[in-house]
């Protein structure tokens, strides 16, 4: 980030030169006017505006500081993030955690949004969501006590009930319903503007069972991915897809890989793989246009996703 001023100056110079030589009226495109800027081609956005926007982009914390660190602060809005891993590694946990964390109000550094949880497998557990929500409220009141320093009991003013109420749960029972719902999201979110995260748990399930025609599957899936990306961009919300893993037989050995094949792997902006490393759960950034590939440990506790136990002390001191 230190380099930003240099870039900024450079860009500004070349910009004014370019403007002069092109004789473009100055009302078009000033790089620093933020929102009001217009562009030469309708719908296009220049890289500088994008940078400005990206730095102001909000992120949803995962409640695990180490993971947030490698993700640059959490799961990014306006992008599609895929999270995959073996059974029992904590994909659904991550989904529930994000559905709760998106509701952290802005005075606690959150988004204060609502969540859509699309369950294709029937693995969403309300009891668990309640546990996570209660832990999250405890953490928030601790945080605000720390922030305000007054001994007056500062109420967060949120109850676990409210959190559960703000999770819109859709149960999808076939791939047709899944496609239909994703088409319909656009309309639903227009009516519920405060939705800030869409979680699909899992994107894979129905497409793995019921499809014989693989070429058709690929087409339908990529159509779905495009729509999800559009939803993410238009409403600046985060789309999180949970994916299963499968074994592939390559070069004489079995390897794990995310399901739905190679062409699907182009569909999402970021891809995070959850895996076992020795005795700890790790998250690995497998693909991201802006983040370095890195891995970080995390753990699943009774309170939700947290820092891994061995790193716990360090995280507390920070």
């Amino acid at each position: 980030m230190k380099k930003t001023p240099v870039f900024y100056r450079d860009l500004k110079n070349s910009d004014s030169e370019a403007l002069e030589s092109l004789n473009v009226p100055s009302r078009i495109s000033r790089f620093d006017n933020g929102e009001g800027s217009q562009t030469i081609i309708h719908g296009a956005q220049n890289a500088w505006d994008m940078l400005q926007e990206e730095s102001s982009l909000t992120r949803i914390t995962t409640s695990c500081a180490d993971l947030d660190n490698i993700l640059g602060g959490g799961i990014t809005c306006k992008e599609v993030t895929e999270i995959g891993g073996v059974p029992g590694i904590g994909k659904t946990q991550m989904g529930i955690q994000l559905a709760v964390n998106v509701q952290i109000p802005s005075y606690c550094g959150g988004l204060g949004g609502k969540a859509i949880y699309i369950d294709t497998e029937g693995s969403f557990m309300v009891e668990r969501a309640l546990q996570v929500a209660e832990a999250c409220i405890e953490d928030m009141s601790e945080y605000s006590r720390f922030l305000h320093k007054d001994l007056q009991a500062f109420q967060v003013g949120m109850q676990s009930k409210d959190i559960l109420e703000n999770i819109y749960y859709f149960r999808v029972c076939s791939y047709t319903e899944q496609i239909a719902l994703i088409n319909y999201l656009d309309k639903f979110i227009t009516e519920h503007r405060d939705v800030k995260v869409v979680i699909i748990d899992s994107i894979t399930f129905h497409f793995r069972q019921d499809f014989d025609d693989l070429a058709l599957r690929t087409r339908v899936l990529s159509g779905m991915a495009l729509k999800l990306m559009k939803v993410a961009k238009t409403f600046s919300l985060a789309v999180v897809l949970l994916n299963q893993v499968t074994t592939k037989h390559t070069e004489g050995s079995f390897q794990l890989g995310l399901a739905l094949g190679d062409s699907w792997s182009h569909s999402c902006t970021n891809r995070i793989i959850l895996y076992w490393n020795g005795n700890e759960r790790y998250a690995y950034i497998d693909k991201s246009p802006s983040l370095r590939s890195a891995s970080a440990p995390y753990s699943v506790t009774s309170r939700g996703i947290r820092n891994s136990a061995s790193n716990f002390k360090r995280a507390k001191m920070m």
Binding site: L164, Y169, T176, E177
Partner: peptide, 8 residues
Amino acid sequence: VSPPYQTA
């Protein structure tokens, strides 16, 4: 065709 939603 979309299924209806319920809150948690």
